[in-house]
Every structure is written in structure tokens, then in C-alpha cells.
Write a protein that binds this DNA or RNA. Structure first.
Lengths: 125, 125
DNA sequence: CGGTATCCACCATGATACTG
DNA sequence: CAGTATCATGGTGGATACCG
């Protein structure tokens, strides 16, 4: 996506949204704020469970676990357990995760770019 | 916020995630499946309420209304009422919405590209 | 430290009905 | 056709506690 031209010709991908149910299911799973934030932070570097929780902020232990499991199940992140005491568990993006990171970064960039626009819209309506 | 980033050259956008609460709030509002699907379909063309509902599929009247209001409130879509009988209401993307569409398209493309990868991951784990 | 399980409050959501 | 309101209800997600 990144530098692909505007809206010009944006074909097949478009109908993914209504396409087969598996694609739709995956799309719905991953298009949520926690998944995006996790991908964003793991995109910066590999992190441990606690680091991730602290960086994200405002996420409960349970939600983080749940989303990490979901992302792992879908092959976006890889979980490495170091059998030390205390345990050390590292999470890293897979290739698919890195690819998604580009999308999430696009969204981050979008948010920054249109922050003013949005504030203005809110004041109006 | 830190304008320096540890990784290659994925700039400031990265720390938006933890940046000011307004950006975070907007990010969290919009990073959800319904918002994405609405943006995706309105990106194809302007649509009426019912059309949108039918194209998206599986969304309740209430959820659609709610999300449309949220997107309008944030200045991503524009609502035009034609005072006919029966009423005709058209929804279209604003400039900000069109820009977000690029992101959503990226996500659609990603989903298609990694569908096989994901299926494989699911079978394994 | 990280994971799992349990409990429970609350809210998001769907269904339904009514209005303009 | 589109919007709003109301209601119930089940599921989401937070808090807590305990395990490895």
C-alpha cells in the first residue's frame, strides 16, 4: 500500500470485504485496536509480555493474552519461551506480521495527518 | 513525542500509538471492523443506507447507524439527505475518508496475500 | 514473570416497534 | 426508506487469585 497511487485502480482487494467467509473472518479478527497496537509495538522491536503491556498502556492482562493468542493462532506473531526462572517470553512479528505492520503504520500516519481535520469536524458537529 | 525511532526509517507515526490521548482515542475508534468495512464500501462509490447495509452484510441496523454517526462525527464521511418521499440519504467519504481508504485497501490486500499463510498457521497451531 | 481460571458487572449488540 | 427508542441478554472484558 504505502506508496501505491491514490485511488486510481483499486480492484480485486476491494471485494475481499464481501468475499469468502474465511477472509472476512480474518479481517474482522485483526481489524481491532488491540491487535493493531500490538503489531505496531512489536514492529519496533521484539518484546516480552510485560514490556508490551507497559508500552501499550491501558490494556488488561487478560486482553493482552487473548489478543496475543489470536495473533499467534493466525501466524502474525511468534512466541518464544526461554525456560529460565523467572520465565522469559518473547514475542516477535512473523513475515505476515511485518507486512501488516506497514498497514498499521499507514493508519498511524493517517491519524497524525488528519488529527486537525478531525478535531475541526468534531467542533462543528 | 520522540521523533527518533530505533528501527530503520519508520518515523514518528510509530509513537502515535502511545502519543497524546486524543490521537489514541481516534485510533481506537476507527480501528474496528465495521468502520473499516464502511470506509471500504463507500470508497467504491457513494451509497445509501440500505445499500451499504446490504453490501456489508451481517451488520445490524443499529450498528450501522452507530458507526455512520461516529464516522460522520470524526469527519470521515458526509451525509446528504434528499428531502424526498421516501427519504433518500447518501453517504460519501470526505477527503480524510478517502485517505483512510488507502489504509483499509492495504489491509484488504494484506488479507488476500496472507490468506494461505494464515490457514497454514491455523492448521499447525 | 507469565499464564490460566473464575467470577461478575456492565455494556455493546441484536431484535423489535414506532415515527416522519 | 431511514432514523430513533426501548428492552433483554449474552458476551466482553476487568479484577482477583493461584499456578508453574
Amino acid at each position: 500500500m504505502g506508496t501505491r497511487n491514490e485511488i486510481a485502480a483499486l480492484p480485486p482487494e476491494a471485494d475481499l470485504a464481501r468475499a469468502d467467509s474465511l477472509a472476512r473472518e480474518i479481517f474482522s479478527d485483526i481489524a481491532n485496536k488491540w491487535a493493531f497496537l500490538i503489531v505496531e509495538f512489536l514492529g519496533q522491536r521484539t518484546m516480552r509480555f510485560g514490556e508490551l503491556r507497559d508500552h501499550i498502556g491501558g490494556i488488561s492482562h487478560k486482553m493482552l493474552t487473548q489478543n496475543l493468542r489470536m495473533l499467534e493462532h493466525n501466524g502474525l506473531i511468534e512466541r518464544t519461551v526461554h525456560p529460565t526462572i523467572p520465565p522469559r517470553v518473547e514475542y516477535a512479528l512473523t513475515e505476515a506480521g511485518v507486512a501488516l505492520r506497514a498497514v498499521v503504520d499507514g493508519m498511524c500516519g493517517w491519524t497524525q495527518k488528519y488529527l486537525g481535520h478531525i478535531e475541526a469536524a468534531r467542533r462543528r458537529g
